[in-house]
Every structure is written in structure tokens, then in C-alpha cells.
Design a protein around this nucleic acid. Structure first.
Lengths: 142, 142
DNA sequence: CCTTGACCTTCCAGTAGGTGGAAGGACTAT
DNA sequence: ATAGTCCTTCCACCTACTGGAAGGTCAAGG
């Protein structure tokens, strides 16, 4: 199977598929003309990778998941551990962004948004006293 | 003022300050020995940038904010517009991550996490029918 | 005067995960 | 023969830095 075909079937851009070969996630064989020749198993791997990436797993996690995917003796505990740690990272990121959102929302609400230069957003960004008491006490920012 | 001093006062690593000079966010003068010589205004700019970056504004947004910071004739509406569009992006990202979190949480909860290879997480990742009906209908993933 | 150590300089490379584009070979249809 | 599409490799670019090497500068101590 040619790369264009695999790209269409897996939903991954051909560029991405070549990149995945580059970093060793798939090893398609080559025809005499130099074209990559993908087996059905390669297609499955690539679709698997596409789904795993869409769930936000990193490339190295995908590599591990892929080896578990091909391991009939795997324990689901190994898979679950990876997913759990990924989930924890996602939730951590959500919390950070929510704190950010709250700060930004407050600033935006308080800003009149008119022709005057007075602006609470700018006031927040403006350094007031670099050596003394902080405007933003420790722990406010993430 | 030397870069080490500015780094300490602004809280930004010296590397980052040099980088900001590279991309034109600050233009410190040079001494005869080649050392950068930062004015107090440069220090203020850098502290401003540090705070803006900690609020998640991108470098190009920071560049615009910095020009507004130095513009006494600015209208707060311009500042607000930038903050609002940034806030919208943050909130968009939060929604994506929340959808992701929900999916992952569901998979993690349903996975026994034992020595058996049976695993709902793997089932989700495993491509079932590449040409036919999708396991994950359009719109499920972000 | 010399050395040590802290500080400064530039430049190159790498991070994550690709994406865009150029230059050129291969295949298919007319 | 040629046009058009597909394939190949390679190099550069994206964000926003960060690490490290090689080397110049400065202040203090012996």
C-alpha cells in the first residue's frame, strides 16, 4: 500500500507518517522503486497512533502504548498507569488555565474599554516597585 | 546595569533577556567592553514582559502590549481587545482539555488495571474498521 | 603580577510534533 | 512524448526558550 492510500485510510497526513517512520514508530518495507510499502498492520498502527495522539498522549507514551498494543501478554494495569498519569497532567493543566482565565476575566471585566488610556489590565502588567513589596504575591501566578 | 542585575530584579533568566533583545523587545545599549547596559526603562519593560508572559500572552501580543504600554495616548479599548481574544483562546483550550479529561477519565474508570490484557483503553485506541463506520463519530474528538 | 572565580559575550544545538516547500525520480494516461 | 499526479529526500520553520561550549572582562587576594 502506498503512503497516499495509508494517509487517506488512517486520517494522518503523509508528512506525519514519514515523520513517524523517522522516529521509529512504524517500519514500512520498500519497493524496488524506493516507494514505501505499508502492510495492513502498519495501517492499524498508524490509526492507533492517530487516536492516541488525539487523546493527547505524547510521542513517547504512544511508543509505549504501541508496544503494549502489540503485546498479547500485556496487563491492563500497565495501560491504565499511562492513561492515569496522562489524565493527571491534563487535569493539572486545566487547573492552571482556569486560574489564568479567572485572572484575565477579572481584568477584562474591570477594563472600561474606551478611548481613555486608564486601564486596569495595563496597571496589572505595569511594574510598580521592583525591589520592594510585590503587587502579585507569591502563589498568585502559576 | 548589567544583565545579571536586571535578571535578578526582573525575575527573568539572563538567557531569556538576551533572547528578548534578539527578537527586538528591548534594545539595551552597550558598554565599551561589549557588556549590555540596561536602563531603568529596560528593566521596567522586562518586568512588564515577564508578567504578560506569565498571563499567557504570546510574544507578538507582548510586543503589541509593550507598544501600548509606552503609548500615553493609547485607548484602553485596544488593550482590552487583546486581553479578550487571549481569554477566549484560554477558555477554548480549557473546553478542549475538559472534553479530553472526561474521555480519559471514563476510560481509566472502566479499566480494571489488573494482570489481564483486556483493557477498555486499548479497545478505544484499537482501530476496528478503517473503511466503514467510525468508532468515534465526527465531533467526539477535539 | 598572576591567578581564581564570577560575570559577561557569541554561537550552535536541542526541545515537541510536526508543517511547508524545493528539487527531482516514478508512474499512468493520452 | 508529455502532462499530471504521486513518490522520494532534505532543509527550514514554527513557540519560546534552554543548555552548553569557547572565550573575553573584571575585581579581589596572594
Amino acid at each position: 500500500m502506498n503512503i497516499g492510500n495509508v494517509s487517506e485510510q488512517s486520517g494522518l497526513p503523509a508528512k506525519t507518517i514519514r515523520y513517524y517512520e523517522d522516529i521509529g514508530l512504524v517500519q514500512p518495507s520498500r519497493r524496488e522503486n524506493g516507494y514505501r510499502d505499508f502492510a495492513v498492520q502498519d495501517l492499524h498502527k498508524l490509526a492507533f497512533l492517530g487516536r492516541a495522539r488525539s487523546l493527547g498522549f505524547g510521542i513517547e507514551e504512544c511508543r509505549t502504548l504501541l508496544s503494549l498494543y502489540e503485546d498479547r501478554e500485556r496487563s491492563s494495569a500497565d495501560v491504565k498507569a499511562i492513561a492515569q498519569s496522562h489524565l493527571a497532567r491534563v487535569d493539572q493543566k486545566i487547573e492552571e488555565l482556569q486560574a489564568l482565565s479567572a485572572t484575565l476575566r477579572d481584568l477584562v471585566v474591570r477594563c472600561h474599554g474606551d478611548d481613555c488610556p486608564d486601564c486596569p489590565i495595563m496597571d496589572d502588567l505595569t511594574p510598580s516597585d521592583l525591589a520592594g513589596t510585590r503587587k502579585h504575591p507569591a502563589g498568585t501566578t502559576l
